[in-house]
Design a protein around this nucleic acid. Structure first.
Lengths: 332, 332
DNA sequence: GAATATTTTGTAATCGATTTCATTAACTAT
DNA sequence: ATAGTTAATGAAATCGATTACAAAATATTC
């Protein structure tokens, strides 16, 4: 079923049908006739033809570093609930934790003239920044913050500070920190700085903090904890950059016969699923991944609208920070 | 940059350029000229225009019931690694555990003339079956089995049988089963039947099995276990239809002061992440979600190829069953 | 070397919508 | 009543590729 067919059936030109659909001026009488035919036939305009003519698609690209992670899948869940109600189609790209693939996807999505890009960022290279600067596409980044692009992110430093403060309050003063790779600003650097700041404020010397720097898996937390202990340092409190790392750290401690939190407290950051099922239940700081995805998607949608109204104009960047919320459980 | 521009620069017609790209007959000399120009300009054909003319898109629809679940996100991971190497674009649709939305997506994807559909099925209604029967699109279902459509699924009954047999071997004879809603054939019915069969084969009366039927979340397993105990039945072994349910069941037991596995053994089915981090570590049967997604994607790709060669022909359905693998840990 | 088959080529049609443009019809204001 | 707006209309152009078709160039056969 195509538009010319509908036009024939309604006894009008295809231009009239197009105007009916897209809201051009048209007489009430024809409007009714066209409406009737469209309802009877269940006609839907061919999106490909429309895209070709209008020089844009109704696709929104969502680039994620991987799928099988708690925080990412909640973020996606949030994004997809918003987009599925919007008339746009979400196209997900799995960057496989590789910045180069991220860039490839961004370029592909720009070439394909997607309506916008939502990037769940990990590491920003100079090429990323250049892309943000040069591209006129609506782009939103979730989870990182950078002045060159619109971002929705968490107060990572604040969250880390909060959980550290809490641990110090609970009487732990000999701290260790298992952090993530520092090419990731949000998780790698900001959270560490939060820990250090909280220590300073409590008159503890942050340079005395023993740190391990690892990746993001349970095994990495496990290894990080063991490295610290093997180094001869036995803390009484361990902060981990993510809940997943904390799970690994607790496992390492328990294997060595330490009681958590009796001998050593452990805290995470994230508030994901894993922390709710381990023993002891993980004390952590909740971050709002799902909400972050929702907000990011909504923001992108409004940027796309804005651009529709004034094309060719570089969109201003905005920066939205989400807070956090301490979850007291059993591991501290 | 468009094809006519390339043609002008290479001093040929745009038909020649198109033939160069799509492999038509063309002289070696022009081939070189065109190649050079394309390389210099980095020209890529406009996919929208191509789709319009060829009456098909390079999109593959992937419909999932939700994103934030371990099994689903591994499946997606598998699917996306295969598709991202294929030249096709994966478009994910979140059906939000709603069969109606599943159908809506299927219809939308058919209208949009996607190259194929990969459905991570939950419940099949009569409308699903009708769609499978009538549609000429390449469709692959992951996780369920039905004769009317090509499926890649697990031996759910076998897996359930295996873990039950194992539990009986370990001396547990007073069993309970926490199962999932039975509108889901694979997880709801087949797994329960596997448990019952294993009991019969061990001369245990399956009708004596106490069952709870719940949804898929941790809390559902928790509730299911409590319901069984509140009914006055204290089993010595509990089989759960999924690992997630097992996590909830163990939590309920521990809260009531039972030792797992000392007093009561608990086993799951799935082999996901959750079972590796709880205490005691979950004894379970591994299912190959990631591999299932990979296989499903590859199969769909080959079906799409087949259809390219002989269009208008209904594709034959195939049925691929994956096995399982017992994981002995601590909960039995 | 003529007749025939095959390959190469460009022109123009095509996919299905939207949009420009020129024209006509219907109002408003004077 | 007339000039000047504004709204409604359909024919035709357009988006950027692929492809049917016919013509031209080349290769093959006898």
């Amino acid at each position: 079923m195509k538009i010319s067919e509908i036009a024939r059936m309604a006894g009008v030109s295809s231009a009239a049908v197009s105007r009916y659909i897209n809201g051009g001026s048209i007489s009430e009488e024809k409007k009714q006739r066209i409406k009737k035919v469209i309802e009877e036939t269940g006609y839907v305009p061919n999106p490909t033809a429309r895209s070709l003519r209008q020089q844009r698609t109704d696709g929104i690209g969502v680039i994620v570093p991987k799928f099988n992670s708690d925080s990412v899948s909640n973020l996606i869940e949030g994004v997809s609930t918003v987009l599925s109600k919007s008339g746009y189609l979400a196209i997900f790209g799995n960057a496989e934790n590789d910045e180069k693939r991220e860039l490839e996807y961004m370029r592909l999505m720009q070439e394909t003239r997607f309506a916008g890009i939502l990037l769940m960022g990990t590491v920003f290279t100079a090429k990323h920044i250049a892309f943000f600067r040069e591209s006129k596409m609506p782009i939103v980044v979730c989870g990182q913050n950078h002045p060159s692009v619109t971002c929705v992110y968490h107060d990572d430093k604040g969250a880390a500070k909060e959980i550290t403060r809490y641990m110090i309050e609970k009487g732990r003063r000999k701290l260790a920190y298992i952090g993530a790779i520092e090419r990731d600003i949000s998780v790698g650097i900001n959270r560490r700085e939060g820990v250090e700041e909280a220590m300073s404020e409590a008159q503890l010397d942050p340079s005395a903090l023993v740190r391990a720097q690892v990746f993001f898996a349970v095994d990495d937390g496990y290894k990080g904890m063991n490295d610290i202990l093997d180094g001869g340092y036995v803390p009484d409190g361990v902060i981990c950059a993510t809940d997943t790392l904390a799970v690994g750290a607790i496992k390492a401690l328990q294997e060595r016969g330490y009681k958590v939190p009796g001998d050593i407290s452990v805290a995470g950051i994230g508030g994901g699923f894993a922390g709710t099922i381990i023993t002891p239940a993980l004390t952590t700081v909740k971050l709002f991944h799902r909400e972050c995805g929702e907000r990011g998607a909504r923001l992108l949608l409004s940027m796309i609208e804005q651009q529709r109204e004034k094309p060719d104009q570089k969109l201003p960047t905005t920066h939205t920070m989400f807070g956090y919320s301490l979850i007291e459980r059993e591991s501290v």
